[in-house]
Design a protein around this nucleic acid. Structure first.
Lengths: 339, 339
DNA sequence: ATCTCTTGTAAAAAGGATTTCAAAACTGGG
DNA sequence: CCCAGTTTTGAAATCCTTTTTACAAGAGAT
């Protein structure tokens, strides 16, 4: 007993395979009576179309690749949810992959060229050069459907969904200034991430606007992970003149930062105020609840998938290839008003 | 300019398509010279095999489905990492899906029967009855390759990767008792999850072993999310005789619980001790660092994928269909020693 | 020199659904 | 009842690779 094929259904219903196919895919193009007969046969045989055969014929994988450096990451997993929901709505599957370091490029090349996926969404850390992209365009004969997320505007040559990191950094700085802080540090994200620079620039702009200078030793090397935050905390503790507030690169590192400080009896927000970035799911459960910049993560995922589907299905119709979503600051309890 | 096919390569190399296929898939069955010629042609034409054509012919999707209720969940995302790593090693892709509530069954049926995936990994919340399973077995003609994770032993009819939730619950209870606690509450997970009962049973056993009775009002309805933890906190606060310790269903709810308590000036571990479950990535960054039961999440994912690959590729060789991984308690700072 | 064995080549089948093209079956008007 | 025009249907081609079969040529053994 094997899977029934379209031929079995056709035989059972006493029609041709073409008619079965039409009855299933374009019911309107077939008489009521024929449709009924086909449906009965489908029912009787427990027939379902084979996706692989269909994909083969249609030259579509009905699947897109999502490339992320760490699929276990909290921040990313919220993005995935948005991507997944939008994909599902259009009957696409998503394949989520962690490329081996430095292998992103090969992975994308390979998956797109073997027709394993119809398009790619790349999350922060796009490693393709313009030359690579030219080659891919040539091999792909046209614009390969790739969408980037969480990159900096202009940093990659593909359509992208992003937020205004510079503005977000500015908001963080301004908020701390408004709360009366003057000595403010910034715990940096990792070097390879271009968003890091944009956030820092915005922060600097807010400081400059308030006539404040940012001391060089107040830029703490941190990374985007909790160990990174702990490292930044160590740097913080070793400062002679400690800042009264710190703007951390993201929420995870902010939590590592605060956790490490607590081991040395330094508490937030009493001794130092902290602002995070991302608004990950547990940010409001931290003690103190973390003041942070909210990114519409699920929406970003959804929009990335929408854009990608547009590129796949009707590239000519895609007008807007850069979509910027709003960020806003959510005041919670990790920032203290001074005086 | 379109994708080159195997025929183009054959023509370019002056051999037949069969030879090209052999040169690529079984290099040993072809002379060195022929292989070189084929490789040159492949190089020159930038040829890559089409995955869809290959899958079609081979009747394999080289892809497995991972079904989870919430792909954005922190706990799951760590499991995904393990699954993904193991899958990648065998050149399989994973598709992660959030089924619509109640739709898990249809989803699995559909995806397996359309041959879209070669197997399925289901995370906690398997909704198939024995009848459904019989039907699937009949339609699939054999044992459909399905592996469950995070279920209770014996609760589902498929091979599974699990932990001993009863023992884990026992460990949590015993630890709190050893730390001098007598009045201990338990914040429950959601009703639909069978693991909830096992954890509670283990906890009860530890209490009974110490000659302690568990008051009924000390079982707090909680859920597995941070809002659930907040709700449990409200129940806790309303108790006349408050317990000195609470064993929470998982880390997320524990964080919601502690966060909510802090709003009412109740602090952990001074006023109440807390034990979580899962050891999610930020558990050690919480203030206080959370004492919890560590699940080897990535390893569980890896093993689930290994088991599934076995079921797909050589079902006859699969001996052990239930794999139990060890859990252990990690003491941190959220439990205070009494007197 | 004949026979067997190896190795590569050519040709064709298989896999399941879609699509094209032409034939058949209808429709309505005269 | 016939014809032109329209709708519905069926046979066959197509998508591309892998596998199978049949065969030819060359190598080695008797």
């Amino acid at each position: 007993m094997k899977r029934p094929s379209i031929g079995d259904v056709a035989r059972h219903a006493g029609v041709s395979t073409a008619t079965v196919s039409r009855a299933l895919n374009m019911p309107a193009s077939v008489t009521e009576k024929t449709r009924m007969r086909v449906e009965e046969a489908v029912e009787a045989l427990h027939y379902v179309q084979s996706e692989t055969a269909r994909n083969f014929k249609m030259q579509r994988a009905h699947s897109v690749l999502v490339v992320a450096h760490d699929i276990g990451n909290i921040y990313y997993s919220e993005l995935f949810r948005g991507v997944q929901r939008r994909a599902e709505a259009s009957n696409y599957a998503i394949t989520i992959t962690n490329p081996s370091p430095g292998g992103t490029k090969e992975l994308i090349f390979n998956q797109l060229r073997t027709a394993k996926v119809d398009g790619v969404i790349v999350l922060s850390g796009y490693e393709m050069s313009d030359d690579d992209y030219d080659l891919l365009e040539k091999l792909y004969s046209g614009h390969p459907p790739i969408v980037a997320m969480c990159e900096e505007r202009g940093h990659v040559r593909v359509p992208q969904i992003l937020i205004d990191n510079e503005h977000a950094g500015y908001l963080a700085g301004r908020h701390l200034i408004e709360m009366g802080h003057r000595k403010i540090a910034h715990a940096y994200g990792p070097h390879r991430m271009p968003v890091r620079r944009a956030r820092a620039n915005g922060f600097r702009r807010a400081m400059a606007e308030a006539g404040l200078t940012v001391r060089e030793e107040y830029f703490l090397e941190g990374g985007f992970s909790s160990p990174g935050g702990r490292a930044a905390a160590q740097s913080y503790l070793s400062l002679k003149d400690r800042p009264t507030a710190v703007f951390c690169g993201n929420d995870e590192s902010a939590m590592g930062f605060m956790s490490q400080l607590s081991k040395y009896g330094v508490s937030v927000p009493e001794d130092v105020s902290v602002v995070g970035f991302d608004d990950i799911v547990l940010a409001d459960c931290y003690i103190p609840a973390l003041t942070t910049l909210h990114q519409p993560k699920e929406e970003m995922g959804r929009q990335a998938m929408s854009l990608l589907l547009g590129l796949i299905e009707s590239p000519a119709d895609v007008q807007q290839t850069i979509v910027e979503l709003p960020v806003h600051l959510i005041p919670r309890d990790s920032v203290k008003r001074l005086k």
